[in-house]
């Protein structure tokens, strides 16, 4: 059986694109999370397929490598009945960006309905969205935003804690280069959580405190009594040099292990957007602790969130018939 009826939805999510969490209202975030929730349930049934995007074309355009994000978008599109095209653009560092608009206009001429884009440059997805007629979803642009990951994290927390309001969330590690951190800061603040950042100053961007966060340079101080711990991936090219002197030193002071975890609330959840560097930002014993780590939840919910995003933007896409 293929389900024909779309999930009912208040019509207050009016954005054409999903370029970032910044600018979304708490109501819009809640609507998207509710819709994702219903896809979680659907994904656990035997018949997972719907046809809300039947006849629609989804193009995944990735200028950076990705496993989980791309796979979950692809699977999400297929479960919603869309035709899904995967494009990986291998580019030299110099060519990145230069071919972006040409690529966008070429793909646009094929009349896709939704374009999912990841790019190493902040602002690249915004730029591209100005040159196409379809809906655009940002799957990560440089150090700017990764909105679907923030929805994943919010849904993960909600399912475990019921509500985001009032929770203390510590985001730890390479905030400077993290699009996940920025999207999470916007979302958590919008939903009434309290955000702390824990990192050495070399990994914190200037004036980040003006985004409504509390800054810590010490893990024990930063994790004290917190409800949620979000560990960020430390990119390998930044592990040695002037951001941090070595993997060993970083893990010693900023890696999450049982000892540092002990100052958080006893039921504090451990999250990581993946892929993890075990022994760099997180100790294996902590990452694999099924009573605390929700890292695999995040992966499962990633699919539901991307279904919800595709569904909701598909409903707003101008090409869709008005009867829908």
């Amino acid at each position: 059986m293929i389900l024909m009826q779309p999930i009912p939805l208040p019509s207050t999510f009016v954005h054409r694109h999903l370029l970032g969490i910044e600018g979304l209202s708490p109501e819009e975030i809640a609507i998207l999370l509710e819709l994702a929730e219903s896809y979680v349930a659907l994904n656990r049934e035997a018949q997972k397929k719907r046809d809300v995007l039947r006849g629609r074309t989804l193009i995944l355009l990735f200028f950076e490598t990705s496993t989980r994000t791309r796979t979950s978008f692809e699977l999400a599109g297929k479960r919603l009945g869309a035709d899904v095209i995967n494009i990986s653009v291998a580019t030299s560092a110099i060519k990145k960006g230069e071919t972006l608009i040409d690529t966008a206009m070429t793909l646009n001429a094929m009349r896709p309905d939704v374009l999912v884009v990841r790019h190493p440059d902040a602002g690249a997805v915004t730029l591209l969205s100005n040159h196409v007629n379809c809906a655009v979803i940002n799957a990560g642009d440089g150090s700017h935003e990764h909105p679907t990951q923030a929805f994943v994290d919010a849904l993960t927390i909600r399912r475990r804690r019921g509500d985001l309001r009032g929770l203390s969330v510590a985001i730890c590690g390479d905030v400077m280069h993290s699009r996940v951190a920025r999207s999470n800061i916007h979302l958590l603040n919008a939903m009434g959580a309290r955000v702390r950042l824990v990192a050495p100053p070399t990994l914190l961007p200037t004036a980040i405190e003006r985004m409504g966060v509390e800054i810590f340079h010490d893990m024990r101080a930063g994790l004290e009594d917190c409800d949620i711990i979000m560990m960020l991936r430390l990119q390998s090219e930044r592990m040695q040099g002037t951001y941090v002197p070595s993997t060993r030193e970083y893990f010693h002071f900023f890696g999450l292990d049982k000892e540092k975890l002990s100052v958080a609330k006893p039921d504090a959840l451990i999250m990581h957007p993946g892929p993890m560097n075990r022994g760099v930002e997180i100790d294996s014993a902590v990452a694999d602790d099924i009573t605390r780590s929700v890292i695999l939840d995040q992966v499962e919910l990633g699919l539901a969130v991307r279904q919800a995003c595709l569904d909701i933007l598909g409903r707003n896409a101008p090409a869709l018939p008005s009867a829908y």
Binding site: E22, A122, G123, D141, G142, S143, H144, E145, R179, R182, P205, T206, A207, I208, R210, M211
Partner: peptide, 15 residues
């Protein structure tokens, strides 16, 4: 320029 705007945009800043 390094600062709040650059940080929000995720762009590396010039101090």
């Amino acid at each position: 320029a390094e600062g709040e705007v650059a940080t929000r945009l995720g762009l590396p800043g010039i101090p």
